[in-house]
Measured scan of single mutants.
Amino acid sequence: THFTSQQLQELEATFQRNHYPDMSTREEIAVWTNLTEARVRVWFKNRRAKWR
């Protein structure tokens, strides 16, 4: 999946605040970024792996 810079900005900003967002937070992010909750969940999983 290719993310727009706007989507990445929103995802990264949320990641800085919370590395493990809950389901409702992921659903909110999905609405803001026009992505599915599953895409958001996978992005956070991959981002945490990169962060370690």
Score class of each variant (00 low, 15 high):
D22R: 06
P21F: 03
E12G: 00
W43A: 00
A13E: 10
D22C: 06
T25S: 08
S24F: 09
V31G: 10
Q6C: 12
R52I: 08
P21M: 03
N34F: 06
F15Y: 07
R26F: 07
L11F: 02
D22F: 02
R39W: 11
R47H: 03
A30F: 03
T25Y: 07
A49R: 14
R17K: 13
R26Y: 09
W43L: 01
S5Y: 13
F44W: 03
T1H: 12
W32I: 15
A49S: 08
E28R: 13
M23K: 15
S5C: 15
A13H: 09
A13L: 10
M23C: 07
E27P: 01
W51T: 07
T25R: 09
F15A: 03
E27F: 11
S5I: 13
F3Y: 11
R47F: 03
K45C: 12
L35Y: 02
K50T: 09
T36K: 03
Q6V: 10
T14S: 15
R17M: 11
Q16S: 08
N46W: 15
R39Q: 15
S24V: 13
A30D: 01
Q9L: 12
R39T: 14
V40F: 01
T33I: 13
R48Q: 06
R47N: 00
N18W: 07
Q16W: 10
Q6H: 11
T14V: 15
Q16A: 11
Q9H: 11
E12F: 04
A38R: 10
T4F: 04
L8D: 05
R47Q: 04
H2W: 12
R39C: 14
M23L: 14
V42R: 14
V40E: 01
F3M: 10
T1C: 15
F3G: 02
L35D: 02
W32D: 09
N18H: 06
R39V: 15
Y20L: 03
R41H: 07
R39F: 12
Q9D: 09
R41N: 08
T4M: 04
T4E: 04
T1G: 13
V42K: 14
K50L: 13
T36N: 05
S5G: 08
N18Y: 06
T14H: 15
T4R: 04
R41C: 07
Q16K: 09
T14P: 01
T33F: 13
E37I: 06
V40N: 01
Q16I: 09
R26I: 14
V40A: 00
R17P: 01
P21L: 03
P21I: 03
K45G: 05
R48E: 03
S5F: 13
A49I: 09
L8Y: 07
F15K: 01
Q9F: 10
N46Q: 13
N18C: 14
N18I: 10
N34C: 08
R39P: 01
R26V: 10
R41M: 06
D22H: 05
R41I: 05
E12Y: 04
K45N: 07
L11H: 01
E12S: 01
S5W: 14
A49N: 08
L8K: 06
T4N: 07
V42Y: 11
T1V: 12
K45T: 08
E37G: 03
A38M: 13
Y20N: 06
R26D: 02
A30E: 02
R52W: 10
I29P: 00
A13V: 08
D22N: 10
V42D: 14
Q7W: 05
K45E: 12
R48F: 04
L11D: 01
Y20F: 11
A38G: 08
R47Y: 02
N46A: 11
V31D: 09
Q16C: 09
Y20A: 04
H19K: 14
I29Q: 00
W32C: 14
N34T: 05
